[in-house]
Write a protein that binds this DNA or RNA. Structure first.
Length: 235
DNA sequence: AACCAGGACGTGA
DNA sequence: TCACGTCATGGT
């Protein structure tokens, strides 16, 4: 089993090369090959975030991207940037209607505006301290995936991020069951990989890339780099 | 023109 | 626990 988790990673890495997550506004133009308007990817550079506002930007992005495509999130982030609202104190001061207007392109703007207000409060009280996973999970609007995205990409803590793409790909590979829980799937990675932040960072990003390119709802198995190690019966 | 996107919450069983 | 409805915009 361990070999297959690692082998999958190696195949994806060889196919797509380093992804440069998490995308940040400050990295605009670094990797113009990626989709979206920000192009805020920074391949082979795992030093981000570089300050509290960049860290908060990742947290905001993690919340805004809930069940939402990244290009839509980018529009919202750019609107927030214009308002200089990628800062917890500014978010707290901003009127809720203004906040909703700014993040409207990301969808669910009523819920997400509330989520950002609540998170900004929490973030402000942290005063730079790294939050515990259980702390994050008590926040309204932060579930397991958002918590792990924040821990991994904003705080460089080794928590593997499980999303719909991960479930789809690893179910098809035959490495997990269709009904496996978030915790079970996360355990699969935690137990079979070195607890290394850079690998967790890259692996999740590669999973997303692969799901977008090949392992879509309707998969393109013929040209898939995981074809030889996949259990999926592609017709 | 339906379908779905880097989920989480509230509810009822 | 767990299945299900709800939330909303924008790209394909």
């Amino acid at each position: 089993m361990k070999n297959r988790i690692l082998q999958t990673y190696k195949n994806l890495y060889a196919e797509y090369s380093p992804q440069g997550w998490w995308p940040l506004l400050s990295c605009k133009g670094v990797n113009p090959t990626k989709t979206g308007s920000i192009n805020g990817y920074h391949p082979n550079n795992y030093s981000y975030p570089h300050n509290d506002d960049e860290r908060l930007e990742i947290c905001i992005g993690a919340i805004l991207t809930q069940n939402t495509s990244w290009p839509n999130v980018e529009k919202a982030l750019l609107n927030l940037q214009k308002l200089k609202a990628i800062n917890q104190k500014k978010i707290l001061k901003l009127k809720i209607e203004k906040l909703k207007e700014a993040i409207r392109p990301a969808g669910y703007f009523n819920q997400k505006a509330k989520k950002l207000k609540i998170f900004a409060e929490f973030y402000n009280e942290l005063k730079g301290r790294t939050p515990l996973r259980d702390e994050l999970l008590t926040i309204w609007g932060v579930g397991p995936e958002t918590a792990d995205s924040i821990l991994l990409y904003a705080y460089n803590e080794p928590f593997f991020v499980i999303d719909a793409y991960t479930k789809r790909i690893f179910t098809r590979l035959g490495l997990t069951g269709i009904n496996s829980s978030y915790a079970e799937l996360q355990n699969l990675f935690h137990k079979n990989l070195k607890r290394d932040t850079k690998i967790f960072n890259e692996y999740h990003a590669l999973i997303v890339e692969h799901a977008k390119n090949k392992c879509q709802n309707k998969p393109f198995c013929k040209s898939c780099c995981l074809k030889k190690i996949c259990a999926f019966d592609c017709v």
